[in-house]
């Protein structure tokens, strides 16, 4: 019985998270577009699934993702091997990004744009190669981002100097990069960080800042995601420039 009340409470909290979407969609459909809701039961079923899914995910977050990120941070700090910690950071960034479905979609779209702009031969094989290289570029850039981000936590460098230099680099590269790659490059920063990676990486950063003496979890622990959304812009523009040059 107690379990059921707890479950209902969690479901209610998920319902609050979803309420804005339902209100917005309902308002625009009924009031602005003045059209009936299509397939009301299908819609209600879908919302119920989303509700259940969100509730389960939030449970798993506290049970698995946060503890895993923290315990990995603790274990690497105990081991005291910088090499393995950095290898882990790179592998985590590279591995999760290479498999990211939204990146795959963006890369395919980018290859189509490139083919239309005659940057790539308009054949299946050439486009696939371009998309593959682009995905690899983004995955490497996220790997490097986490690596640099972890070094930053260890050294206690202020995050803003690194990020602002990154912005300056992005702006400078915008002048030289081919126009067709700019929109994709700017978007690539946003699509790389998935729902599972974010909690893990956040817990890892905060965990590291906790176990290393002299680091403040608030100032030093956060910031890893920021790097992971910045480097893809730089690397994708670099990729576009190199591709145009050769």
């Amino acid at each position: 019985m107690q379990g059921l009340t707890a479950l209902l409470k969690m479901m209610a909290s998920s319902a609050r998270d979803l309420a804005p979407i339902i209100i917005v969609v309902g308002f625009f459909q009924l009031v602005v577009l003045q059209q009936p809701l299509p397939d009301v039961w299908g819609l209600a079923g879908g919302v119920l699934l989303v509700l259940l899914g969100l509730t389960l995910f939030m449970q798993g977050l506290e049970l698995a993702l946060f503890p895993l990120g923290e315990s990995m941070a603790g274990a690497f700090a105990n081991k005291g091997s910088l090499f393995w910690l950095l290898t882990f950071a790179f592998a985590l960034g590279f591995g999760t990004t290479a498999a990211e479905p939204s990146l795959t979609a963006v890369a395919a779209e980018a290859a189509r744009i490139a083919a239309e702009g005659n940057v790539v031969d308009n054949t299946e094989a050439a486009r696939a190669e371009y998309a593959m290289l682009l995905r690899l570029t983004v995955a490497i850039s996220v790997g490097i981002a986490l690596l640099v981000g972890v070094v930053r936590i260890l050294k206690g460098w202020p995050v803003q100097y690194l990020i602002i230099s990154g912005y300056v680099t992005v702006v400078a590269m915008t002048f030289f990069a081919p126009e067709s790659i700019i929109g994709i490059a700017y978007d690539a920063g946003g699509v790389t960080t998935s729902t599972i990676t974010v909690p893990l990486v956040t817990a890892l950063g905060v965990g590291l800042a906790h176990v290393i003496r002299g680091r403040n979890p608030m100032i030093d622990g956060f910031g890893l995601i920021a790097f992971a959304s910045l480097t893809p812009m730089i690397f994708v523009m670099g990729f576009g420039m190199l591709w145009a040059a050769f």
Partner: peptide, 17 residues
């Protein structure tokens, strides 16, 4: 929980919203 939750979440979004 994470995997099941995410799958249900995505399925609901893709089916309805």
């Amino acid at each position: 929980y994470v995997i099941l939750g995410l799958a249900l979440f995505l399925l609901g979004l893709e089916k309805a919203l």
